[in-house]
Amino acid sequence: MAKPKVIVVRVRGILERSGDIDPARLRRAYERGIRALTGAASLDEGLGRLFRPSDRVGLKINTIGGRKISTRPEVALGLAAAFKGTGVPDKSILIWDRTNRELRDAGYALSLGSSGVKIYGTDTDGAGYEDELYAKGNIGSLFASIQSRFATASVSLALLKDHGLAGVTAGMKNYFGAIHNPNKYHDDHCDPFVAEVFAAPPVATKHRLTVLDALLVQYHRGPAYHAQWADRAETLVFGTDPVATDAVGWRMIEALRAAHGLPTLAEEGREPRYLATAERMGLGRGGSDAVEVVEEEA
């Protein structure tokens, strides 16, 4: 079996001194990442291999951390814009998270119109959660109708962060924002909950791509923002294997921790065990020998 590929794109200088993002560099990073991931000659062709023109694409972002540490609007809108040449119309792309308040606090302007890229939260009128409880294994949850009904294809456009309970929060855990009760799944380092939420059909059958926003990485004391432990890593990580992509994110966090003289997550007893569980459940592969990591500069 071919190793899953994970593309790590370093984009030096993408974070301007003001904290703004250089749009040209961002576009280049998407181009590099998607091309390397898919082997396509162009960004359009690469995304075209992952999505059909008839897809409705949900870009699940993470805005719980407010303006300081959320998926940045430029990053999400930049990815939405990258779909331009794929035949997926703007109106079929929805950038979303749990609540409109969190989206606004993170700097997003809501957009609910019938044309253009949509931006709104699950608490929007007419969205909300499914009526039927999804109950399997350790999970008893209602899925956001955006994930279960609107999206035919889904991208986890997640922040890469240290997480006091989970160890690492990245692409898989980002889908906690697609259920009504994520607060119930932080026991035992979120294991096996992250894997079991991901394995639920509304996620597992739709997830096509993980993009980790590692432009600014909270490598310690996350998921809240602490400036002293946030690194301007200026990196985006791309993968179609959710376990492999998050495992690479985890290794980035460990590298940053080591560079700053911090103990490993395992030494702190909070390594993201849910990744091993996810691997056992057949959701992907995470071991360092099992993943082909391609490093790029953009």
Partner: peptide
């Protein structure tokens, strides 16, 4: 420190960073 809190109402004693909610939600 660092704007964290520990809830001591129930035996879960949730420890939470800024903007986080306890297990009870």
């Amino acid at each position: 420190p660092d704007r964290e809190v520990e809830c001591v109402l129930c035996p879960r004693n949730c420890r939470l960073g800024d903007k986080e909610r306890g297990y009870c939600g």
